[in-house]
Design a protein around this nucleic acid. Sequence first.
DNA 1: CCTATTAATCGTAATATTGCATTGAAGCGA
DNA 2: TCGCTTCAATGCAATATTACGATTAATAGG
Lengths: 115, 115
Amino acid sequence: MGISKTELFTKKQNELANIARALGHPARIAILQHLVKINACICNDLVGELGLAQATISQHLKELKQLGLIQGTIEGTSVCYCIDPKVWEKYKKLFSEFFLEVKQASKANCSPDCC
Amino acid sequence: MGISKTELFTKKQNELANIARALGHPARIAILQHLVKINACICNDLVGELGLAQATISQHLKELKQLGLIQGTIEGTSVCYCIDPKVWEKYKKLFSEFFLEVKQASKANCSPDCC
DNA sequence: CCTATTAATCGTAATATTGCATTGAAGCGA
DNA sequence: TCGCTTCAATGCAATATTACGATTAATAGG
């Protein structure tokens, strides 16, 4: 029904999914990459850079801000957006852990010619 | 308009976003974790495990399969799903690279008290 | 052949997301 | 003060996602 049954899953699973969902849009990936490159940036920069409308980019920025990944500090008429390194590091670790869970676990309980 | 303007972004940005979007649902995180734990699994296991309907889980599995993250081989009346370690490793690397882009870049071109 | 089991698919409803035009608010310069 | 710039907030339309019941297809076992 378009609504995720978050109550079925652990807090960590939901957290991971939330981060992944936030990264799950090329515009937000591009915004983060641009922020990293410049290490400081105002919204209007991005409008020229990405080719999306200002309102759209503002919305993407809002989502990233809600996640805590970026901070926005008011700077006169403009807003300076930066990546929050602490949160970035935390999420990086979360994903690393998730991806590391795999290793090369043994063949396990399925048939020999499976996979 | 509910449709992403993928043509504005690089192939790599879209690829990253696609992977992230696929991981952007707690059920799919849970499915992957369960697959890792068991290292092989059939859909019906997951129905009991997750508390979602069979149709819903089948749909989530389909998305993960489209991404290449998991393989499904027919096994009599059931299907055996496994993680594809090669693809998993590839995506792990992609994300690591993305997260590593940050480092501790210098303060850059914004005001001294920004961020 | 009949039936049970298993998973994929279809159809549908509810809700979320994306993108934008427009409006609103706040600071800056003339 | 009057615009002008910059970004946020709102509201809309188009589309995507999530979830599930019902159906279908395939296979195993009798």
